[in-house]
Write a protein that binds this DNA or RNA. Sequence first.
DNA 1: TTATTTGTACCGAACGGTCTGTTTGTATAT
DNA 2: ATATACAAACAGACCGTTCGGTACAAATAA
Lengths: 180, 180
Amino acid sequence: MHLFWAKGYHNLGVDAICRETGMTKGAFYNAFKNKEQFLLTTIENYGNLITAHLQNELANSETKAFDRLLHLYKGMLEAQPENNHIGCLVNNTMSELGILNSTVASATSYQFNKFLNVIEPTVKEAQQNQDLTQTIHSKLLTEIIHTTFFGVLTTSKTTKSSGYTVMETFLYALKNRSDE
Amino acid sequence: MHLFWAKGYHNLGVDAICRETGMTKGAFYNAFKNKEQFLLTTIENYGNLITAHLQNELANSETKAFDRLLHLYKGMLEAQPENNHIGCLVNNTMSELGILNSTVASATSYQFNKFLNVIEPTVKEAQQNQDLTQTIHSKLLTEIIHTTFFGVLTTSKTTKSSGYTVMETFLYALKNRSDE
DNA sequence: TTATTTGTACCGAACGGTCTGTTTGTATAT
DNA sequence: ATATACAAACAGACCGTTCGGTACAAATAA
């Protein structure tokens, strides 16, 4: 997972996967049909991991929904510099293989939607708290937020910054201004 | 340019470049030091092309600044389905090579900033027209908008949609609500 | 003539994937 | 308890292809 994450698909060979994991080619091709199948499995594992993380981060009901969202994205973005700006495997794979491999494409958009479904209730709660604009349906608003997050992840790969300023300012811009 | 754009860096060989352009390897390596140098040249050409396009699209002063922005992003996103969701070369390259090659990384972020500098005056104008939130500095607001655009481009590669709904709703969410 | 550009054969390395011989765990028969 | 059977798992040499890049002679330009 970490190899695909950091190096991408075409820049990572099966030999390197085997070297890193201690598998041999025989074991690898016994367990997976091919490199693509291994990527699909990896994406699913990654998606489950992230989904659990999101659920965990957003579960805390002691703080307000909007602050939980802020804290969630802050944590993920501020971890980027120390993680060598590895970004998100789903985002990375969407970009590299989205138009080249439709099977992989639908696997990534499936995981992306899973992310949205986990985040949406908190967005809705923030809307009900009058902390986020109510003029947009919570599902679409969640998509906007997480899409921007993906954009920030991509651009921060080259600026080597966390990109959190952009994300934070963006979230505050979506804050309902009726309470100001 | 079109080859890097559609296939990415690692998935495109020098042989394929020569086949497509009619060059031979001798000519290629006489003109460019290596494949990376060719990518850097390509990114610069691409950046100039897009910068000119942005300038052209935003120059029209007959419509309001906010509507020009809307129209700009609408045009670029609605062209995606017919262009096989090729996206933006700068965005694609940022994602694939951002953490692997620092020279390419800074070339892409340089072009990204050029884009921002072209768009910013129109954003500022929209702010002055009270059509965009004034609480954020125009440069940062421009960065937020274009970063979200990049995010939309990436995710729409896998959903095969134009993604314009997300972008449009997003821009309207940044609209100053004092006039409603 | 001399300098530059071009065509192409070629290089070693790495690619995804296959093949075959061997080990291993387990189920059944004795 | 021990022997036999057998499929699944595994190790790693090996396959043809493609990779980025070089060498060098031929062609062209100055």
